[in-house]
Amino acid sequence: MVSAMSLDDLYQEILLDHARHPRRRGEIGEGEALADLENPVCGDHVRVRLRIEEGRVKDLLFDGKGCAISTASSSLLAEYAEGRTVAELRESIARFTAALRGEGSLDEFVDSDLRALEGVKEFPMRIKCATLAWHALAQALDHAENKPAGTETNS
């Protein structure tokens, strides 16, 4: 017997709001995308566009199709990342993906609603949904800085 689960832990109100009204979302043409990732498990898809100005991320935009968790995560990430430095974001990406793997907590994101994704940890099948946008952002930063593709692993 499997114990009762709380959907409310996974789908917190703030996440459902971001899923319904994703921020910084718009159409990105294939040529404009700096990263284009799919979640091979479910076929979900995310595209990222951004530019880097004086070491900071500007005009970040996400596009794609995904579940509520993946859409909310990309929306929260977009809000969080805009205007931050590339170095700072690389560290955040590492911390976020590690936290969802169970190594650390999202409490470090004190100034962001990203902490609402903490509940995803209890749903191992959904971790990929929550991290897809973050892997895409990492890839986009690599491309924006002209690093060779494929240096970030999609795990």
Partner: peptide, 28 residues
């Protein structure tokens, strides 16, 4: 309602269904 979210909800009610591309991406 994305299939993953629906399947997750159904699971919380004990109902096991499949959601995803069903290993048939060209057809989807």
């Amino acid at each position: 309602l994305h299939p993953h979210d629906l399947a997750q909800f159904l699971d919380s009610r004990g109902v096991a269904i499949r959601a995803g591309h069903l290993c048939a991406q060209p057809l989807l």
